[in-house]
Every structure is written in structure tokens, then in C-alpha cells.
């Protein structure tokens, strides 16, 4: 919301838009070409050409599979996931007027983990329900319980947050109970890995689900950018500025919940991105949501793609859980941003 020129500077805007689109593409190119299996750059691009446009370059089936089906789908999903989580965090921080708000504050991750564990260990749903499906159902269940609690408590921001805490604790307890009483050591390890986030099993169908969710979510959020600005001084102030507070809240809580639940059910709970990227983006472009939301989407996407590359190469022969990398890399990076943007006391 910093000083808007009355005449928009179109060349500058177009330049920024091109750069904003090029940066994630570059990150994806990095993600596709870096990995344990050494594949020459030229071969990598030929494989992409084959996969995307059916160009028929002579690339071995293994290399084609690694580049196109494994690395590209994984990088795209990482980008969508990072962007959607950062966007959700920015929205919830504005709606709840709380800098610590993040996508999992409404119990979505806790519910997802209970749902995932119910499928992995209890065999819930039999063959019909995948771990992702279970996680999605769990997150929806948790969200509904939290929404009921919050509405029953009056719906004020602090009540919503407390309801989220209560719901999260409940579902975390359920998860812990199932894991400690029923899981084998092997299963417990699998659950642990899932909880920390994992892009390993990602394939194209996941991308085809996540893409419309993230893009539609982004479009709806952008339509509410001005309304979100009006929440700066609270819900009453927003209402007196003509914002339909209840409708905006319901729509945006629902949109962030669907985006978050979708991402969590595909890749598990990846922390840090949804909390910190919005703050980093605010330091860059200020608090106005018309700029903040697209910037969150782009930075979140780039951050997650790069974090995924690191998770694959930091420890040779092993893949670190992505949630560990986002926090390991993100925390010091954020500390630097905080330090550089400190207010004069």
C-alpha cells in the first residue's frame, strides 16, 4: 500500500510480472536438472521437450522418467504447495490480525495427520482410501470441529485461534494414541516421515489436483485483496468501510482451508513456509494485499522448490524431510530479514 502513482507505470509493471514468472520457472529448471542421478543439461531439456510437446528426442526411458515424471512433477507440486501455504498464511494473518497465524492454526494439519494415521495404521477405509484421502477427510473433520467451536465462542479472532488450539490438541492426542498403542516401529517411522512432509511420492495426478486448487484459491483471494486491507484496524473497522465481514471471513477461511488441506493431504505437514514467507513478503512490498498476495505466491513457490532441491542433495544418499529443510534454511534467513528490517526503538 505504499505510494501508488496515479498513472500506473505499465513498463515497470510488465517487467516485474515477467520477472515474477521467470523466477519460479528458473527454480523449476534448477530442480529438474539437479539430483542424484547426473543427467546432462541438454538431455534434461530434451526430456522436457519430449514430455511437454512430444518432440521425440532420443532420451533413454530411465532418464525420461526421472526428469519428466519424477523431478518435474515434484518441482511443480513443491511450487504450488509453497505458494498456496504462503498465500494461506498471509490471508489468515490478516483475517485473525495475528502475526503468528499460519495455515495450520485452524487444526488442519492435526486433523490431516490423524486421518493419515487412521489409514496407515488402522487400515481405515480399506483399499478405497489412500493416505492422502484419509488426510483430506481428517483435515476437513478437524476444520469443521474448530469452526463449530469458534462460532459457538462468538467468532472473535482470539476465539477462533483458541478454538484452533483446542481442535489441534484433540487431534494430535488422537494421532499420538494411535501411533503409541498400535503402530510397529516401522510404521511409526513412516508416520514420522509423513508428518514432516515428503515430496517423494508425488506424481502427475497430484499436480493435476493441486494446480486448480492453488490457482482458483489465488484468484478468489485476489478478489478480496482490498477487503483484507480494510481488516487492518479490526472487523468493526472493516465493516464500517463497507466490507461484508462475515461473508469475506467465511469465503476466505474456506479457501485457505481447502488449499491447505489439499497440500497437506498430498505432501504432509510442511511447516514454516506459511508462517514466515508472508512476513518476508511484507518486508519486500509492504502490507497492501494487492501486491502482498502475488508476491507470497511467487516467493512461497520459489522457496519450496529450492528447499526441496536442498532436501535431496544436503545429505548424500538420503532425502531429508522437507519440513526439516524449510525450517533449517528458513529460520536463519528470516532472522536476517528481521534484523535488517528492525524498527528504530
Amino acid at each position: 500500500m505504499s505510494h501508488h502513482p496515479v498513472q500506473p507505470n505499465w513498463p515497470a509493471r510488465i517487467g516485474i510480472a515477467v520477472a515474477a514468472l521467470a523466477a519460479p520457472v528458473f527454480a523449476i529448471a534448477l530442480a529438474v536438472t539437479i539430483g542424484e542421478m547426473r543427467i546432462p543439461l541438454a538431455t534434461a531439456f530434451q526430456a522436457l521437450g519430449n514430455g511437454l510437446f512430444d518432440l521425440g528426442y532420443p532420451v533413454s526411458a530411465i532418464q525420461q522418467g526421472v526428469i519428466f515424471d519424477y523431478r518435474l512433477s515434484r518441482a511443480l507440486l513443491a511450487g504450488l504447495c509453497g505458494g498456496a501455504l504462503a498465500l494461506s498464511g498471509a490471508i489468515l494473518q490478516a483475517l485473525l490480525r495475528n502475526p503468528l497465524a499460519e495455515p495450520y492454526i485452524l487444526g488442519i494439519s492435526a486433523g490431516a495427520s490423524t486421518g493419515a494415521v487412521a489409514v496407515m495404521i488402522l487400515g481405515f477405509g480399506g483399499a478405497a482410501l489412500t493416505v492422502s484421502g484419509g488426510a483430506f477427510l481428517g483435515s476437513v473433520a478437524a476444520l469443521l470441529i474448530v469452526a463449530l467451536l469458534a462460532a459457538g465462542a462468538g467468532g472473535a479472532s482470539d476465539r477462533v485461534i483458541l478454538a484452533g488450539v483446542a481442535g489441534s490438541q484433540l487431534f494430535n492426542a488422537a494421532t499420538a494414541t494411535i501411533v503409541t498403542t498400535l503402530a510397529s516401529a516401522e510404521q511409526a517411522r513412516g508416520v514420522m516421515f509423513w508428518l514432516l512432509g515428503n515430496f517423494g511420492g508425488v506424481r502427475w495426478p497430484d499436480v493435476f489436483v493441486a494446480t486448480p486448487v492453488a490457482l482458483a484459491g489465488f484468484a478468489i483471494c485476489m478478489l478480496h485483496a482490498k477487503a483484507l486491507d480494510a481488516f487492518a484496524f479490526g472487523a468493526d473497522a472493516a465493516a464500517s468501510l463497507g466490507v461484508a465481514v462475515t461473508r469475506v471471513r467465511v469465503v476466505l477461511f474456506a479457501v485457505t482451508a481447502v488449499m491447505t488441506a489439499t497440500m497437506v493431504s498430498i505432501v504432509g505437514t510442511i511447516g514454516f513456509v506459511g508462517l514466515v514467507i508472508p512476513h518476508a513478503a511484507r518486508f519486500l512490498v509492504g502490507p497492501g494485499h494487492a501486491r502482498l498476495l502475488p508476491v507470497c505466491l511467487v516467493i512461497g513457490a520459489i522457496f519450496m522448490i529450492l528447499a526441496d532441491i536442498l532436501s535431496r542433495i544436503l545429505v548424500p544418499q538420503q532425502i531429508l524431510p522437507i519440513g526439516v529443510v524449510t525450517a533449517l534454511v528458513g529460520a536463519p534467513a528470516f532472522a536476517i530479514i528481521l534484523y535488517r528490517a528492525r524498527r528504530p526503538a
Partner: peptide, 20 residues
């Protein structure tokens, strides 16, 4: 006494008045 934790400048706050 309505206040905010968000880093806004004076013109940002007044601009909110144009929302409707």
C-alpha cells in the same frame, strides 16, 4: 483507540477510507 500492528503509513490508513 483503534490501532494496528501492521506497518502502515498515514496515507495508507486514509486510503482505507476509499474502500467503499
Amino acid at each position: 483507540q483503534a490501532t494496528t500492528e501492521i506497518q502502515l503509513c498515514v496515507c495508507d490508513v486514509v486510503r482505507l477510507g476509499r474502500t467503499p
